[in-house]
Design a protein around this nucleic acid. Structure first.
Length: 426
DNA sequence: AGCCTTTGACCAGCG
DNA sequence: TCGCTGGTCAAAGGC
């Protein structure tokens, strides 16, 4: 069951000799940006970003003494004015092409983004930086900040990946709805979720292409995928076609709780993809985290937040994301639609998302048109963004039969950057 | 003892 | 109808 069919031949769009970020994101051309051009576009230059304040810049230069979360907080707190303008422009222009951070993101799941080890998904969302999202990295972070941020993770080990479309779309909406500032100060998931709901109301259209996915990738041991505070029981495991990674099936052990999740991980067990299905109809077990060694205070605080937020089934960690996306997709209200594997509002023409697993792929296909495939012939000095890059690895990205290249900066800690091939326009 | 994981078998949807 | 595939069941075993 593992013999994988050879990847189908795909049309490719060769990397143009030169493409400026401007032309790339003007929405007028078909030029495909190289990975670093994209990176540069995602992370505004220092000159630009420094105008936003020295907090983040200091953090980047002194990354060793600054926590990742702090980095995030600092960088998010003061988005440079020009970025705000960009955000507005993005808001007008739509998700797909208008702005750097979003336009380059594949329709679904391409917003890959790493988190330093030791920061569990739970902790990740617990932190004030919970609003961190790939797109936001582009919004509020200077190039250096982003560099430091990614460097921080690169210098650590397991690759933690976040990969869920709702973040991209969420950010897109946030920019146009002026919610970004709120996001910067959001203190808990409840706020975030509420915000998401509001955004969902205002920017519904922006989510149509990406709303469905509850996917994201986290590193997780095989046995304990993404400790999110709930208790899960594994009830199955399969190797799905097109992926070398086994997929595990988990159910929430709470009686009558319909929530399930599918977890995929790489051979090394470092990268997981978690797909939630359903919605918890109960409180998160109170002592789970304490048992796991997390602080009781955090637990209590979190419970408090839960209560205050009035969100019963939606919680932080993955659940927060999950719940948010549900709200974004207009599902969370009222009863769970059946097994509600987050059916996009209606998404009629979609096979009722029967295969959430392929949301990334299907979204790409459903979404569009824009097919950006970065094809390179050289492994060295791909782009002239001022940094030297060398390819240090290549791997097959789940959901994409074609390998994603990874690059490292030529100097200092390596930066990982994945080239995502955006399906679409033939 | 209870809960969990493992894993082969079974079922259902789809082309 | 058949084969493929994803999802689920459930017995067995481990912790």
């Amino acid at each position: 069951m593992s013999a994988r069919p050879p990847p189908p031949p795909r049309p490719r769009l060769s990397l143009p000799p030169r493409s400026t970020g401007e032309s790339l994101f003007s929405g007028t051309g078909d030029a495909s940006p190289g990975p670093l051009t994209l990176a540069s576009a995602l992370f505004p230059s220092d000159a630009d970003a420094d105008a936003g304040g020295g907090g983040g810049g200091g953090a980047s230069s002194g990354a060793g003494a600054t926590s990742f979360t702090q980095l995030l907080i600092g960088s998010l707190s003061q988005p440079p004015p020009h970025q705000q303008q960009q955000q507005q422009e993005r808001g007008r222009g739509g998700v797909a092409r208008a702005g750097p951070a979003l336009s380059v993101a594949p329709p679904a799941g391409a917003a890959v983004f790493t988190v330093p080890p030791g920061l569990s998904p739970s902790g990740f969302f617990d932190s004030p930086g919970l609003i961190f999202s790939p797109a936001m990295g582009g919004f509020g972070m200077s190039h250096q900040q982003a560099l430091a941020q990614v460097t921080a993770q690169a210098s650590h080990s397991p690759l933690r990946m976040f990969d869920h479309t709702e973040q991209t779309s969420f950010s897109a909406a946030a920019t146009s709805s002026g919610a970004l500032q709120n996001m910067s100060s959001a203190a808990n998931v409840a706020e975030m979720s509420e915000m998401a709901t509001t955004i969902s109301n205002n920017e519904h259209a922006a989510f149509q292409s990406a709303e469905a996915s509850h996917r994201y990738q986290v590193p997780a041991p095989v046995d304990k995928p993404a400790d999110d505070g709930y208790n899960w029981r594994k009830y199955g495991q399969k190797v799905v076609k097109g992926s070398d990674c086994p997929r595990s099936y988990y159910k929430c052990t709470h009686p009558s709780c319909p929530v399930k999740k599918k977890v995929e991980h790489a051979e090394d067990g470092q990268i997981s993809e978690i797909i939630y299905k359903g919605k918890h109809n109960h409180q998160r077990p109170p002592n789970k985290r304490a048992k796991d060694g997390s602080s009781l205070a955090a637990e209590q605080n979190e419970q408090s937040n839960d209560t205050a937020s009035g969100l019963s089934g939606v919680r932080r960690d993955q659940e927060a994301v999950y719940g948010m996306s549900e709200q974004l997709s207009g599902l969370s209200d009222g009863d769970d639609k059946d097994d509600g594997e987050s059916r996009p509002n209606e998404a009629d023409d979609r096979e009722s998302d029967c295969k959430r697993r392929n949301i990334q792929i299907s979204s790409q296909k459903a979404l569009t048109e824009s097919k950006i495939i970065v094809q390179t012939t050289s492994e060295v000095d791909l782009l002239d963004d001022g940094y030297r890059w060398r390819k240090y690895g290549q791997k097959v990205v789940k959901g994409n039969p074609h390998p994603s290249d990874q690059f490292g900066s030529g100097v200092g800690p390596y930066i990982r950057w994945s080239i995502f091939r955006i399906e679409g326009r033939g």
